[in-house]
C-alpha cells in the first residue's frame, strides 16, 4: 500500500473513494438534492423501468449531477409505465409517463438541468407526507 505523504495525497484517496459514499451522503439530506423516483412495481419493471433507472444512474454519474435515484412501488399510473417522479428541492414533484432510456436522458438534460418541461407529464393526483 502506498504511504500517504501529504494533504494532497489524502485528498486524492478521498476523491477515489468518495463516490462509494456518495449515495450515503446524499441520502442523509435527500431534500437538498433532486430526487428521481422510478416506479419499480411489476407493471413498471415489465415495461422497462429497470433499464430506465440504470440510465438515470449512469447519466447522473456521467454529468456529476446533484441528484439521487430511488426506486418506489407502484404509483398507480400503470397505463403509463414506466413512470418517473422528479422532485427538485423546494418544488412540487412532476411525474413523467412512458419514460424510456432516450427520454430519461432528455429529462436530465432538459428538465433537471434547464427547467424546461417536456411532453408526457401526468397530472399528480396524490400528496406525500
Amino acid at each position: 500500500m502506498n504511504k500517504i505523504k501529504s494533504l494532497s495525497d489524502l485528498r486524492k484517496i478521498k476523491q477515489d473513494v468518495e463516490n462509494r459514499l456518495d449515495l450515503r451522503e446524499k441520502s442523509d439530506n435527500p431534500e437538498r438534492h433532486v430526487q428521481i423516483k422510478v416506479a419499480m412495481a411489476t407493471c413498471g419493471i415489465a415495461s422497462g423501468a429497470r433499464e430506465v433507472m440504470n440510465a438515470f444512474i449512469e447519466k447522473i454519474a456521467q454529468d456529476k449531477l446533484d441528484a439521487i435515484v430511488t426506486q418506489t412501488g407502484c404509483m398507480g399510473y400503470c397505463h403509463a409505465e414506466p413512470t418517473v417522479e422528479i422532485r427538485k428541492p423546494g418544488e412540487e414533484p412532476i411525474v413523467y409517463g412512458h419514460v424510456d432510456v432516450e427520454k430519461a436522458v432528455a429529462i436530465v438534460d432538459k428538465y433537471i438541468k434547464q427547467g424546461e418541461l417536456l411532453e408526457g407529464i401526468i397530472p399528480v393526483n396524490y400528496q406525500t407526507v
Binding site: 494533504l7 489524502l10 485528498r11 484517496i13 478521498k14 477515489d16 473513494v17 462509494r20 459514499l21 450515503r24
Partner: peptide, 25 residues
C-alpha cells in the same frame, strides 16, 4: 452507523485524517 469501521478508505472519504493533515501542515 454510516461507515464501515473496518475500512479506512470510508473514513477518509468522510474527511478522515484531514484534521491531522491540517494541523501538521
Amino acid at each position: 452507523g454510516f461507515i464501515d469501521p473496518e475500512n479506512i478508505d470510508e473514513y477518509i472519504a468522510r474527511d478522515g485524517y484531514a484534521a491531522l493533515a491540517k494541523v501538521l501542515e
